[in-house]
């Protein structure tokens, strides 16, 4: 509790203080910056709206929203692996992470040295997904054929 924290003269302590107003002000600033940014983006760019749905005329390629393009890229190799196995595995691994990696090492520190294996593993998975999304977004044309975005 605030008044009982001893500094011991070792390092400057970052004490916890009763400061509701300060918290609310910080919260408000963040929300206002966010809201302003979102308003500006929304005034500059319109949300996409294509032609009315026509079940008789498929569009080519039919791309998923960007956050699913990584999976769609995997699906183009194998629908079962990319669409079922990989997403299921991702979810299972995500759910198990805190029950597998329980050692109290590097808690509350960015990229703690004691956790380099975990960080590299997770980082590579994130990187792989981002690369797949970029491929799906820019390097895939009709019939999901490989294209170069600057070619046409």
């Amino acid at each position: 509790m605030p008044n009982d924290v001893k500094t011991n003269g070792v390092e400057p302590r970052n004490e916890s203080v009763m400061n509701l107003a300060g918290q609310l002000v910080r919260l408000m600033i963040l929300v206002m910056v966010l809201l302003t940014a979102l308003l500006v983006v929304s005034m500059l760019f319109d949300a996409p709206l294509g032609a009315k749905a026509n079940p008789g005329h498929p569009i080519n390629p039919a791309k998923a929203p960007w956050y699913f393009l990584g999976l769609q890229e995997l699906v183009s190799y194998s629908a079962f692996i990319g669409g079922i196995v990989v997403p299921t595995l991702i979810v299972i691994v995500l759910l198990l992470i805190p029950y597998i990696d329980r050692k109290p090492v590097g808690i509350g520190v960015w990229f703690a040295k004691g956790r380099w294996i975990q960080n590299i593993f997770f980082g590579l998975c994130v990187l792989a997904m981002i690369v797949l999304i970029i491929i799906g977004m820019y390097f895939r044309g009709e019939y999901w054929n490989f294209i170069l975005p600057w070619a046409n």
Binding site: L49, K52, P55, I59
Partner: peptide
């Protein structure tokens, strides 16, 4: 939005669930 992208995007997405 029921536009072309929505319709065919959903068609592709739901067909994956079929696997």
């Amino acid at each position: 939005t029921w536009d072309q992208l929505a319709y065919w995007g959903t068609t592709v997405g739901t067909s994956i669930a079929g696997y």
